[in-house]
């Protein structure tokens, strides 16, 4: 059952990606980005990664779309159609070879949910077994994020904070707006 859902979702994502490539109306492209994010969020739900799906839906489909729309208000709505100035064959060949290498690489990756995968053998069993007795938190994602790997999460928060500072330095330096609007 999961297999069919995955195939349908991945097919829809591929269709969305192709549609984004073909479109020139930026508003439609932004909406399709949101749809793409929602599809990947559903894919994460199918994989039982509910926390990741939650973040993807809130950040990828929600905030990013809003920020892109806010940016769109400042630019033109239509991408300019340019004649293709180069031959597509060399880039196509590069993309094809890279894709083939990536697919070849996935052949060595352990199957999804394989209990003998190296990632499941290292510290994951400890977290799963000890989370309740160590922290009393039933959601292991939260106990790993906030307690076992609390220092990593501190770094993540500082990254978010730094990103905010960077945006403010680049485009948002004004703390108070001039009270005088217009004299006329």
């Amino acid at each position: 059952m999961d297999l069919y859902i995955n195939i349908i979702l991945l097919a829809l994502m591929a269709i969305t990606a192709l549609a984004i490539l073909r479109m020139t109306n930026i508003f439609a492209i932004v909406m399709l980005f949101g749809i793409f994010s929602f599809l990947s969020a559903v894919l994460f739900v199918v994989m039982d990664a509910v926390d990741v799906a939650f973040t993807e839906a809130a950040v990828g489909a929600g905030i990013s779309t809003v920020l892109m729309i806010a940016t769109m208000a400042l630019i033109k709505n239509q991408e300019e159609k340019r004649p293709l100035g180069h031959r597509p064959w060399l880039p196509l060949l590069v993309v094809f070879i890279t894709g083939a290498a990536l697919v070849y690489g996935t052949l060595d990756i352990p199957a999804f949910g394989d209990p003998n995968a190296p990632a499941q053998k290292h510290v994951a069993p400890y977290y799963l077994e000890k989370s309740i007795s160590d922290t009393g938190v039933p959601n292991v994602v939260t106990s790993v994020l906030a307690s076992y790997r609390g220092f990593d999460t501190l770094g993540e928060v500082v990254v978010v904070f730094t990103a905010g500072i960077a945006v403010l330095i680049l485009i948002g330096g004004r703390l108070t707006r001039p009270t005088k609007r217009r004299d006329k």
Binding site: L67, A70, A73, G164, I171, G172
Partner: peptide, 13 residues
Amino acid sequence: VMLLIFFAFAGRG
């Protein structure tokens, strides 16, 4: 931070 980024973007217009 999300609000600050949004205000910065939207305030440009």
